[in-house]
Amino acid sequence: MEKLLPPDIVKQIRDVFQQLKNPVQILFFGTEKHCDYCAEIRQLLEEVSELSNLITLSVHDVERDADLAQLYRVQGKAPATIIAAREGDQVTDFGIRYLGIPSGHEFTTLIQAILMVSARDSGLMPQTREYIRSLTRPLHLEVFVTPT
């Protein structure tokens, strides 16, 4: 199959992936219903995962793997890409998801998210960290974007 990522982009990603420190688990949840782009997203994530042995990709289906989809809160949200941490067989969910096709600027964000999760550090300012850690009620952030 023809590659989605051009060679120059592959080289750039390989370069930044030199900074990866700890293992990252990418979970992709597709669906068989009305998902024109699921195969493409899956291929894109496979190509990214192949660029570092610290990255593992698992592919799921929101209908067939309904229990797992519920655990990760992605029912009705496919195509969903989750960037999580992995230690051995243990996957730690950081509540980081991208719903849709991660192309253009959102592809860059995906790579940044992989680097952040691998570093196990949000990189936020001390006062932001303090406030977010002190939250006693759930915070749901829905960031609407368009791939440009």
Partner: peptide
């Protein structure tokens, strides 16, 4: 990306979703 950073800081409380507006119209 900022939303992802916020989630990373307290994943027990925060869910951060980047949502493609056209796909989820």
């Amino acid at each position: 990306m900022l939303a992802y950073q916020i989630a990373m800081e307290n994943p027990r409380m925060v869910l951060a979703e980047g949502i493609e507006a056209m796909e989820f119209d």
